[in-house]
């Protein structure tokens, strides 16, 4: 196959749902699958998430780029994703063998979506502590994402959430499109997410 640049995957979701925690878990899971990767983080006015990732030493620091959204986080992943496209292009130039770039959005609300000009596939992360009614609210992120991840499932009993109906409602709202559950702190469910990403955008036997 010709190298035409890395596949690009967006990771969006509300503030505190666990997007960065998921990225931290996905990096070793994808490395284990032989995926050469880099990460772009989006923050409002800091490089907080990029610095957090660099401190983990999971990736070489130059493989983690930060984009400052400045204002509405969804603007730089949807209406005008130029900053993120340029960052991804620069990673492609600096690392010609890259397979995959994870683009983590700044924390936003349930309405954020990714432009398909920017990414090839995108997932949306919610968490049980945000309330089991989130799928019923049918936000565009929940409905339109290629993959919905429900994180912090270990907290369900402590926040009055029964997980099974929440998953059922999420699947119904998404008309059967995939929903996966994770507990990033305990590294649970991460392999399924990594497999889904690889199956969606990387070359592999059918």
């Amino acid at each position: 196959m010709r190298k035409i640049g890395a596949a690009r995957i967006g990771i969006g979701g509300p503030v505190g749902s666990g997007k960065t925690a998921l990225v931290e878990r996905l990096i070793p899971a994808l490395h284990k699958r032989g995926v050469d990767l880099a990460v772009i983080t989006n923050d409002l006015v800091t490089h907080e998430d990029a610095e957090r990732l660099r401190r983990t030493n999971l990736l070489a620091p130059e493989r983690i780029l930060a984009v400052e959204a400045g204002a509405c986080p969804h603007t730089v992943i949807r209406e005008d994703p130029t900053l993120n496209m340029e960052a991804a292009d620069s990673l492609d130039r600096d690392f010609p063998d890259l397979d995959l770039i994870l683009i983590e959005s700044g924390g936003d609300n349930l309405a954020s979506t990714f432009s398909l000009d920017l990414v090839d596939y995108w997932l949306f992360v919610i968490d049980v502590a945000g309330g089991d009614d989130i799928p019923r609210k049918r936000g565009p992120g929940v409905i339109q994402s290629d993959l919905l991840v429900i994180n912090k499932v270990d907290l369900a009993p402590y926040v009055g959430v029964t997980l099974a109906p929440m998953i059922r409602e999420a699947s119904a709202a998404r008309a059967g499109r995939p929903v996966l559950c994770t507990n990033c702190r305990a590294n649970e469910g991460i392999d399924a997410v990594a497999d889904a990403l690889c199956a969606a955008v990387l070359y592999q036997a059918a």
């Binding site: 596949a7 398909l116 000009d117 090839d120 596939y121 969606a200 955008v201």
Partner: peptide, 11 residues
């Protein structure tokens, strides 16, 4: 809705 995609598996 999927026309902008450039990288995907299908049959």
């Amino acid at each position: 809705a999927d026309l902008p995609r450039r990288r995907f598996h299908s049959h």
